[in-house]
Design a protein around this nucleic acid. Structure first.
Length: 574
RNA sequence: GGCCCCGUAGCUCAGAGGAUAGAGCAACCGCCUCCUAAGCGGUAGGUCAUAGGUUCGACUCCUAUCGGGGCCGCCA
């Protein structure tokens, strides 16, 4: 239950009643009425802006509305007091029983505490990673992988029907390059001297692929022209790279529901079908584009092309979908792929792109808008660069020198849990500093540790409580302000889930968990000075049972939050 | 030149149109015979890049300007 939503419902019902008996005019909209936690805890437990929002349309003074509303809200037993403050805020103080109930609910609901019905019946497709199948995943891909996976988990937690999907770019020129590179390794495996020219992938990770190819076909491709082996080697190499990528994803705890092959769109009529769909809408034409303003390429010449009228759906210029030799541009299969998603019945689409693909956002949005007649929203989230540091010093990656940091390196050096949490402590569109040393540090500087430590403390208390053989109860006897502060934070969890899910921002979960951990550590330390605030009451199972519900609830929420982020909660610190 | 993202404390960053803009680090002052002090409390620190606009109310929305990054016709 989202207590904020419930109190809002009560406020709305009260407003309806005021309309019914003439205290407010009819025809007002409640759309802008909010009930939120106030920034300043001194302002009570929650505040509503109803009076200020309604003052103008109702033609009444905000404070007058607020006072009338306050009086009527006294009928709600959950509301202890309602006070008008500032320009017309109504500050609500809730009865202690509300917080008791929420703690009890968290304890009872366990893993499902915070689940929301907001996504019920909505099919959403989250496409992420989608790295070219030409090598192992690196740091940038890792951020996209972690972000996309956490977002998918978050939406799942909020009740959506989620599909995690990977688009394999196996239809373009880069897989030919891959095939040629593997062929060189194949020759090498046969003891030949080879040279890796520009336009081939020199990475060591292709050595075993070349060797495997030799095992499979023996010397069949030696001294053969490309047209003999290219298609076969391409398929073989792509499959090998996808195995590599699947294993990388698995190492970081990501499991896709679907892999969609770009190649499957070619020569099957599917691209044509999607383009036909656009043709029907009159959005395909043959024309000539203006040169890009300002920075004109040296070899620019006007050229007649088949274009998609993406400007009709918010893009800045129309986009070519066919090259002058009659083959498709990369954009054409992208259109077909998204047409396929729409036809599969998804209600919402989310794509995770690296920031360097920011230029494609508008045209993809235009394509989806056109193909779905504006029915299916597409939200493209861009993940910014990851800057690597070692001991506070920037750590340069170079693809040429082979010193680029892979997902495997990250997992090996700091572990999957730390990698995931750290990558989610920044907004997706903000650059991320990743310091190899700092992220493994065991101190409050390190949010991963801080949150894990709170969970470990909970578990420690639980283990000791179990030894006391007490009668477990979900009834939390809250007395101290510090205890109520923790309970209030717990009450925010269901609301936080909905906000994070609506905004597609899983980092909010990470920040929330940090705040909850902070409240919990604070209460814990109060127990040092004030023995009656300790969760374990020495030799008194009854008193302990009454204290233990709160830390249990904290454990539930941290554990639920971490599971959304894909991080394993720890039992103890080592 | 155009488009997108960003600009908040010395540093790293949060902030569904709400009240006196928050947290961590760094600085300073305190707290362990007591459930893990790997922690907690306190002090100090601000022209929310700038200028206009919309609004009862703007860090948040709109416009312009400045600064940083990214992208920009048959490469994906």
């Amino acid at each position: 239950m989202n207590i904020f939503a419930e109190i809002r419902t009560s406020v709305i019902e009260t407003l309806d009643a005021m309309v019914a008996d003439g205290a407010l005019p009819a025809g007002l909209s409640w759309g802008n009425v909010t009930v939120e936690p106030p920034r300043d805890p001194g302002h009570g437990d929650m505040a509503t802006n109803a009076a200020m929002v309604l003052a103008k349309p109702a033609g009444q003074l905000p404070r007058a509305i607020a006072e009338a509303l306050a009086e009527r809200l006294q009928n709600d037993s959950r509301i202890d007091s309602a006070e008008v403050a500032g320009p017309g805020f109504l500050n609500l103080k809730l009865a202690p029983v509300v917080w008791h109930d929420i703690v009890a609910e968290a304890v009872d609901a366990g893993k499902s505490f915070g689940h929301s019905g907001m996504g019920a019946g909505v099919k959403v497709n989250v496409e992420f990673v989608s790295a070219n199948p030409t090598g192992p995943l690196h740091v940038g891909h890792t951020r996209g992988a972690v972000f996309g996976d956490a977002l998918a988990s978050l939406l799942d937690f909020a009740g959506y029907d989620v599909t995690r999907e990977y688009y394999i770019n196996d239809g373009g020129a880069q897989v030919d390059v891959l095939a040629r590179s593997v062929y060189l390794r194949y020759l090498e495996a046969h003891g030949k001297e080879v040279a890796f020219e520009d336009g081939t992938y020199p990475g060591d990770y292709l050595i075993p692929v070349g060797a495997a190819l030799k095992d499979k076909v023996g010397d069949a491709y030696l001294e053969q022209d490309e047209d003999v082996w290219l298609a076969e080697v391409r398929a073989f190499a792509t499959e090998a790279m996808m195995d590599l990528i699947r294993s990388d994803l698995s190492a970081i705890g990501v499991r896709m529901d679907a892999f969609f092959s770009e190649k499957s769109l070619y020569n099957t009529g599917r691209i044509e079908a999607a383009i036909d769909e656009l043709k029907k809408k009159g959005l395909i034409y043959t024309g000539t584009l203006e040169p890009p303003k300002g920075k004109v390429p040296e070899d620019w010449e006007p050229r007649e092309q088949v274009l998609f009228r993406s400007t009709a759906h918010g893009d800045d210029v129309d986009r070519p979908i066919m090259k002058s030799d009659g083959s498709w541009t990369y954009f054409a299969p992208d259109i077909a792929y998204h047409w396929d998603k729409i036809e599969r019945g998804f209600d919402e689409l989310i794509n995770i792109f690296g920031a360097d693909h920011g230029g494609y956002v508008k045209r993809m949005n235009a394509a989806v808008s056109a193909l779905s007649d504006g029915r299916v929203p597409l939200d493209i989230k861009l993940t910014q660069l990851v800057k690597l540091f070692k001991d506070g010093q920037p750590f340069k990656m170079s693809k040429r020198a082979g010193t680029f940091v892979t997902l495997g390196d990250l997992v090996e050096q700091v572990g999957a849990d730390v990698t995931r949490f750290v990558m989610l402590t920044r907004k997706n569109d903000a650059p991320l500093d990743f310091d190899f040393d700092k992220v493994s540090e065991q101190s409050k500087d390190n949010p991963v540790f801080y949150v894990q430590y709170a969970h470990a403390r909970v578990r420690s208390v639980m283990r000791k409580a179990e030894a006391m053989h007490l009668d477990w109860s979900d009834d939390a006897k809250l007395e101290d302000p510090a205890e109520f502060a923790v309970a209030r934070k717990i009450a925010e969890w269901p609301r936080l889930v909905e906000i994070a899910a609506r905004t597609h921002e899983p980092h909010r979960v990470a920040f929330y968990l940090y705040e909850l951990a902070s409240e919990f550590h604070s209460l814990w330390n109060k127990g040092n000075d004030l023995p009656h605030l300790r969760f374990l009451q020495d030799g008194d199972p009854k008193a302990t049972a009454a204290k233990i519900a709160l830390p249990r609830a904290v454990g539930v929420v941290i554990s639920n939050g971490l599971s959304i982020l894909g991080v394993t909660p720890v039992e103890e610190m080592r």
